[in-house]
């Protein structure tokens, strides 16, 4: 009778564990540079955010530049210190869950209003004379269009991120499939052993 009680308790514990659980262990870290800021998001395999995880930003020599913690949505951002062209972002959530990401920074980014304020343009549009008033109007239009495009790109980015989260999810069919493979591998080992040593196993 005692064993039935214990078995019941065992299943109760198991049920309790199942009910309050979620898949997820592997951390995904996505980062991108927006202007002079780096924005990032960290989440577990099931799409749940990595809450108040420590973010360390290092330069390539391993020297720490700054420290951040992710917010309640797993997001973080920091402004890029001047004179840094490449950084390493380290994210840790304890117990060896560490993600490292290398990021090459674009240094010639343009701030809003850059185009308008600049008196001369660089590169292929090299101008030597100052910009006239009509041209200023044109640049203003361009600025507006660029900012609209930026908004659209941001929306697209979020969509891509959501799709990536979707891909990272763990499906039951994968788990069941993997169990099949495990059983299959041991079956192969069984047959190899039987073939090599039929007498030993017959006994």
């Amino acid at each position: 009778m005692l064993s039935i009680k214990k078995l019941g308790l065992f299943f109760f514990i198991l049920f309790f564990l199942f009910s309050s659980t979620s898949f997820g262990h592997k951390i995904n870290l996505f980062t991108n540079q927006v202007g002079n800021r780096v924005e990032g998001e960290a989440f577990f395999a099931d799409g749940s955010p990595c809450l108040s995880c420590e973010i360390r930003v290092l330069d390539l020599n391993g020297k720490e530049i700054l420290k951040r913690k992710t917010d309640e949505k797993g997001k973080f951002s920091f402004s890029i210190p001047s004179g840094v062209s490449e950084i390493k972002i380290l994210l840790s959530a304890g117990e060896g869950h560490l993600v490292e990401k290398r990021l090459t920074l674009k240094t010639n980014y343009q701030k809003k209003g850059d185009l308008l304020n600049s008196q001369t343009l660089k590169g292929p549009f090299l101008l030597t004379k100052p910009i006239s008033r009509d041209e200023k109007e044109v640049y203003k239009n361009l600025e507006e269009k660029i900012s609209k495009l930026e908004d659209e790109v941001k929306a697209l980015r979020e969509e891509v991120l959501n799709m990536r989260k979707e891909i990272q999810k763990i499906y039951y069919r994968d788990i069941i499939g993997a169990i099949g493979y495990i059983l299959g591998i041991f079956a192969i080992i069984y047959f190899i052993k039987k073939k090599n040593n039929p007498k030993k196993d017959a006994s």
């Binding site: 262990h25 577990f44 304890g94 869950h97």
Partner: peptide, 14 residues
């Protein structure tokens, strides 16, 4: 293999 998928949220990491 299966047991490893049952996560319990304790602290920052599960």
């Amino acid at each position: 293999f299966l047991v490893s998928f049952i996560h319990i949220p304790i602290g920052p990491a599960s």
